[in-house]
Design a protein around this nucleic acid. Structure first.
Length: 333
DNA sequence: TTGAATT
C-alpha cells in the first residue's frame, strides 16, 4: 500500500475480534464512523482462520480518533473489542510476547505487571482463567513493546521466585501464533444460557452464544426454523436518548444480516425516545443477538432486547410520516 | 503446548 501520509494517525489495530466475525461485518462496523481506505482481519493464509485481530486505515485522522472513542470496548458476541492506534510495524516489536507458568494462584494482571514492568513497556498482559472453575490456571502472557525488553525480562526473571511466593516462575517466549493453525475451526462453543458454575463470580456472565458451523447453516435457518420472508423484528429498549439508527446498526450487525433499523424519535426534543426496532433476516442470528445483547450493559444502561411480537409493546413498526431518519438497509455495499 | 497485538 502506498498510504504513507501519516499512517500513525490513521492506522488502527483492532484486537479481541470474535472468531466468526466476517470481513464484511468488520468493514461495515468501522465504515459507520467514516470513510476508510483499507480494512483487514488478519487470517491464516491456508485456512482463513482469524487470528482475532485486524487493521483499519481511515482516510482522516479525526475519524480514526473517533473510532477509538466510540468503538473500543464495544461488545461483539463474546468479546469486547479494543481499538487503538497501531504501532509502526518493524522487526523490533516481533517476538516480544512471553509465556509465564507457575504463577501464584491469587495473582491477577496487576501483580503480573508489577513484576514485569521494570524490564520494559508492557503492551498487554493476561492471566488465563479456567472457564469451568473461574480460577487462575497459573499461566499467563506478557507482551512487551520490543523484543529486547522481553529478552531482558527473561534474563532477569527466569527461575526467580517472586517476593512472597514459594515457587520459581517459568518464562519463555510465547509460541509464534501465526505459525499455528487451529484445524478444528472453533466448532464447540455450545450455547449454555445459564451456565451456573459454582465458585467465584465471573466478570461477565457466560451467556454468549456462538454458532456451531457443523450444526446447521450459519447464515440460514437452524433446523426446524420456519423461514420468514419479512425477517424477524426485535424490540430494543433502554438504548438511551442519544441513540441513532447507527447505534442499532453497530450493535446488531455483528450478529448477522440486518434488514433495517428504526430508532423511535421524540420530534419535539429531537432525540431518541429510548427504544427502537431491528429487523434481522435469520431467526438464528436474531436469537443470538437477543442472547448476547439482552441484559448487556451499554453506555450506562442495561439493554432489553426481545422479539417484538412476543411482548406486544408497540403497535406496528409503521414508519411515521415525518420520520426524517433514513433507514439503514443492508445490501451489497 | 498456552491466547490470539503488527498486516
Amino acid at each position: 500500500m502506498e498510504d504513507q501520509n501519516d499512517d500513525s494517525s490513521t492506522n488502527l489495530i483492532i484486537n479481541y475480534l470474535p472468531q466468526t466475525l466476517t470481513d464484511e461485518e468488520f468493514r461495515s462496523l468501522f465504515l459507520s464512523v467514516g470513510p476508510i481506505s483499507s480494512s483487514k482481519i488478519v487470517r491464516d493464509k491456508a485456512t482463513n482462520y482469524s487470528y482475532g485481530f485486524g487493521f483499519v486505515v481511515y482516510e482522516r485522522a479525526q475519524d480514526a480518533q473517533r473510532a477509538i472513542e466510540t468503538l473500543s470496548g464495544l461488545q461483539l458476541q463474546n468479546k469486547r473489542i479494543k481499538v487503538a492506534h497501531a504501532r509502526p510495524s518493524g522487526d523490533q516489536i516481533k517476538g516480544a510476547n512471553l509465556y509465564v507458568r507457575n504463577l501464584p494462584s491469587h495473582w491477577t494482571e496487576t501483580e503480573l505487571n508489577k513484576l514485569f514492568q521494570p524490564y520494559g513497556k508492557i503492551i498487554q498482559s493476561r492471566i488465563l482463567i479456567d472457564l469451568g472453575t473461574g480460577l487462575s490456571r497459573r499461566v499467563g502472557f506478557v507482551l512487551y513493546d520490543t523484543r529486547d525488553e522481553a529478552e531482558n525480562a527473561i534474563k532477569c526473571l527466569s527461575g526467580k521466585t517472586p517476593e512472597g511466593c514459594t515457587e520459581p516462575i517459568m518464562i519463555k517466549f510465547a509460541d509464534d501464533n501465526t505459525k499455528k493453525i487451529k484445524q478444528q475451526a472453533q466448532v464447540q462453543y455450545v450455547p449454555i444460557p445459564n451456565f451456573a458454575a459454582p465458585g467465584p463470580m465471573r466478570t461477565q456472565p457466560n451467556r454468549f452464544q456462538r454458532f456451531n458451523p457443523m450444526a446447521g447453516n450459519f447464515n440460514g435457518q437452524g433446523p426446524g426454523m420456519v423461514p420468514n420472508q419479512g425477517g424477524y423484528t426485535l424490540f430494543v429498549y433502554n438504548i438511551g436518548f442519544q441513540a441513532t439508527d447507527r447505534t442499532l446498526w453497530q450493535l446488531f450487525s455483528p450478529f448477522g444480516t440486518v434488514q433495517k433499523v428504526n430508532i423511535m424519535l421524540d420530534h419535539e426534543k429531537n432525540q431518541c425516545k429510548g427504544y427502537g426496532f431491528v429487523t434481522m433476516t435469520n431467526y438464528q442470528e436474531a436469537q443470538n443477538a437477543i442472547n448476547c445483547l439482552n441484559g448487556f450493559f451499554f453506555q450506562g444502561r442495561v439493554l432489553q432486547v426481545s422479539f417484538k411480537n412476543q411482548n406486544q409493546q408497540q403497535p406496528q413498526q409503521q414508519q411515521p410520516q415525518m420520520q426524517p431518519q433514513q433507514q439503514v438497509t443492508l445490501g451489497n455495499q
